[in-house]
Design a binder for these strands. Structure first.
Lengths: 346, 346
DNA sequence: TTGTAGGCGTTATCAT
DNA sequence: ATGATAACGCCTACAA
């Protein structure tokens, strides 16, 4: 690959054509319909391409094609490995389709999200995957209205005007609390917030439903609200929990996600509570760090990468299949029991 | 924004011009040199743009400009939060420059890395940031030769043919082991591998240097090799460590990164070893999960986001400043002492 | 101040 | 089988 970038610009089909002594159309044919070119010329052209270090210019192809060869994912919280795993699933699918992936992080801030979306629309990405700050934000509707393939990740579509991929969060909450009831716990805390987050509301709701169905007194399911789904909020919830009068103190906690659970675990250990004997803990998401904790965390598993792969599949279907129908893909969460909820109590 | 996407295509400057009753050049002026347009026409054009929902087509701008408005980062291991934090720093800088960011993950596989690079070159990204599988791989040199701005992240450039950003890993290793010596430990393990990874070699070297300088017998610095820098490899190192005859068993371990340290911690706790009393642990990177562990981990801190921001700054300088000089930015790591190494022993 | 024209690199259509 | 040409949307001289 002996470069001689004529005045800084990368070599184009035109340069290749000149070098190979053929017309520009022929070079294009070699690239896109090699069968139609005689093997002699094809070889000559290919040699020229190699010598010049020719690489197709995506921008030009995009301009012609009207759409880019890229997808985009706008994450809600880049600091949460859950979303990174979803992103990895998306990247796998994008790779398989030979597409590039823009990864953005809104960090939970609507205005950053909106700015990212603007940029992505300018880029004419083939499709946008997003775990939105607010599923009902108007700028999301704009995207669909623009006809840009669009999939909501980790949130079910309310209106059904687009595809979505999520697990059944209510069911997840049910599974978690059922497990704790099963373990003999009679006072349980739900740790999570803010309730502006749909996932939190639904996981909490599932917890409540089961608690009621088992005929437990509503007062024995204590809600410890948090301001975010972070480790440090988990720690602070732990402090509040430890501060409860012992007759009210729960013997188990169901946390709205694993980060909270890890924070809670840390505080419990620091405060000298034994896990699971003094306090059992269940998290949600089953990120890798849940299994890696000093006391491995029981967690409600979401098929993280598969969420991503499915979302990518849907967005590509919408982008390429004229008969595309919007689809709400729902996955079933599963309990992964580990040491943090210990052995059965009864 | 009342859309009427004429036959599916997004509205172009031409459409805006027609709607506003001006020429296409004027629309362009409104976009790029608003000062030169009379406020009356400008307003008319802006209204037309809003009504049509006009958004500039990046591909076309790129084609003209010869380069895209995007950067790219190729990560070595997407499962390690360290790289995610670096990526976040890069994204911050990219955002500030109004650039999009392609994020790719080589997963430590040279062939995936190479494939990603090919795609990124096709995309004509403004610059490529990479934490390479092998800093000496020929496909990296190709990039520089193509004149694509290029920065190596978390690895110093050997040859100096490009910019790089890293911390002083040897110093990091020194700091860690000095801390352990300071705590009175006389038998220490270095946990890490494979030695094909430069960072591992250098952190190990730093550990050795200090050990020697303090006149400690080489045999008392035990190397527990691992096959990767992962939690599960940390666990397995823990098993081997616990299996050592007690007179040889180290009282402290320095792990080449935090994932190993977390795995080691988990095994220690499971095996009934008290941390730090029976086994002190030092990690490397200071990812958020180090501080979040049940026994908060002492770690050698890298300025993760700042690494990313600096790398982005350098690549942008190379992209825009004709007088750019390649630069090897080196940061100084710092020990963050936490419970996993406990209080002084003497 | 506004309009016109040419070209960025690629692809596809139409002739040859 | 190959070559010439127009078009994608935008930007920037230059002309009016």
């Amino acid at each position: 690959m002996a470069q001689q970038p004529r005045n800084g610009r990368a070599p184009s089909v035109k340069d290749v054509a000149a070098a190979a002594g053929v017309s520009l159309g022929t070079v294009s044919n070699v690239l896109n319909r090699p069968a139609v070119v005689s093997s002699a010329t094809r070889e000559r052209v290919e040699r020229a391409m190699a010598e010049l270090g020719f690489i197709r210019n995506e921008s030009a192809r995009q301009l012609r094609a009207g759409t880019s060869r890229a997808l985009a994912y706008v994450m809600l919280d880049g600091g949460n490995p859950f979303f990174q795993d979803v992103a990895e699933g998306i990247e796998q699918a994008a790779d398989a389709a030979d597409l590039s992936l823009f990864v953005c992080n809104s960090g939970g801030r609507a205005e950053r999200e909106s700015k990212h979306l603007d940029r992505l629309i300018q880029q004419r990405v083939q499709g946008i995957l997003i775990t939105p700050v607010d599923p009902d934000a108007p700028h999301l509707a704009d995207i669909a209205r623009r006809g840009i393939p669009f999939v909501m990740v980790d949130r079910l579509s309310s209106a059904g005007g687009h595809c979505s991929v999520a697990v059944d969060d209510v069911l997840g909450g049910r599974i978690a609390v059922e497990h704790l009831i099963d373990r003999g716990h009679e006072r349980v805390a739900f740790v999570g917030g803010p309730s502006s987050i749909g996932q939190v509301r639904e996981r909490c709701q599932g917890a409540r439903e089961v608690w009621e169905e088992f005929g437990r007194p509503a007062d024995d399911l204590i809600h410890l609200p948090t301001e975010a789904l972070t480790v440090s909020e988990g720690r602070s919830a732990g402090e509040r929990l430890a501060g409860l009068p012992s007759r009210r103190r729960p013997t188990a906690a169901f946390c709205a996600n694993d980060l909270l659970a890890l924070g809670l675990l840390q505080h419990a250990v620091t405060a000298g509570l034994r896990v699971p004997d003094d306090l059992a803990i269940v998290g949600f998401d089953d990120i890798d760090f849940a299994a890696a904790a000093a006391v491995p965390l029981t967690s409600v598993r979401q098929p993280r990468q598969e969420l991503g792969r499915t979302a990518a599949r849907l967005v590509l279907d919408e982008a390429t299949n004229p008969d595309h129908r919007h689809e709400q893909a729902t996955f079933v969460p599963a309990l992964v029991a580990r040491a943090s909820t210990g052995a059965p109590r009864r």
